[in-house]
Computed example of a mutant assay.
Amino acid sequence: MSTPATIQQTSVLLVDDDARFRQGLQTLLQFYNTTNDQRFTVVGEAASSQQAVQLAMEQHPMLILLDMELATGDGIATLMELAKLDLRSRILVLSGHQEDEWVFRAMRAGANGYVVKDDLATQLFQAIETVLSDQIYLSPELATRFFQTFRFYNGQASEAKVKLHLTEREQEVLHWLVQGASNEEIAAHLYISVATVKAHLTAIFNKLGVTSRTQAIIKALKMGLVGYS
């Protein structure tokens, strides 16, 4: 007598400003419920960045299906906020864009996978299984584009670091600055004094040609000097 397969329960948060699209996702998930040993339960629907973050904090979903273009709130910013919550949610981006830059920015900002909306019918279930297994999902085509873009920006960043003559310690300070750390927090992370942190920041500002922390963060991200975490 065979043993019944274990049913896997997965809570899902849907984030898209198009109600019809969210309904379509509901229909797909219900179909998966009847054809696989996986049960998806939608615990919330959000149409804005603020709603998405609030529901994620309240529901702690195992899976977040996130659109990159919300009527209120930037998709990348939303993705970064969700990733920072550290809820152990897997974030799968569903987007109408397949351009290299969109995929690259989403993956850098903390996405666990990226699926083009036109390919949902053929790729969504595999993508969900992949990210729930703590792996990254990109279709072969998107993966190729992503790594091509990664190599391009990595090369740019290397050239920028050489051109700016950033020291290893300055790169470490810049990393923590981009993460939003205060001078005191940077000092604690790097085991140096606050006065030393301030000295490094002054040198970094001069090399970047900026006058504030915000300007330094924006320029560092644009130049690919640091990434998100």
Results as ranks from 00 to 15, higher is better:
I64L: 15
Y32C: 06
R90A: 15
L70K: 06
I7V: 15
S182P: 00
L225E: 06
L190C: 09
M1C: 06
S193Q: 04
D119A: 15
L190T: 00
A220R: 05
A188T: 04
L29E: 05
A46F: 11
A106Q: 04
I204Y: 14
V12C: 10
R145S: 10
S95Q: 05
A77Y: 10
A160D: 04
P4V: 02
Q123P: 01
T122N: 15
F205H: 14
W176A: 05
M62S: 14
A220S: 14
H200T: 02
A157M: 09
A46C: 08
F104V: 02
K207W: 12
A127K: 06
T78P: 02
M57T: 04
M107Y: 11
S182E: 03
I64T: 13
M80H: 09
R88H: 15
E168L: 12
I91D: 14
L70D: 04
V116I: 08
S229V: 00
S11L: 07
A56R: 00
V115K: 13
A83V: 01
D119F: 15
V210A: 13
G227V: 03
L174A: 09
I186Q: 08
L70Y: 10
S11V: 01
L65H: 05
A127G: 03
D118G: 13
A47S: 14
T122Y: 14
Q50E: 12
R105T: 00
D119S: 06
Q148E: 12
A199W: 10
V162H: 11
L14N: 04
S89T: 01
Q123M: 10
R88V: 00
Q179V: 00
F146N: 02
Q179E: 13
K117W: 08
T196G: 09
S95E: 07
A157Q: 08
A19Y: 13
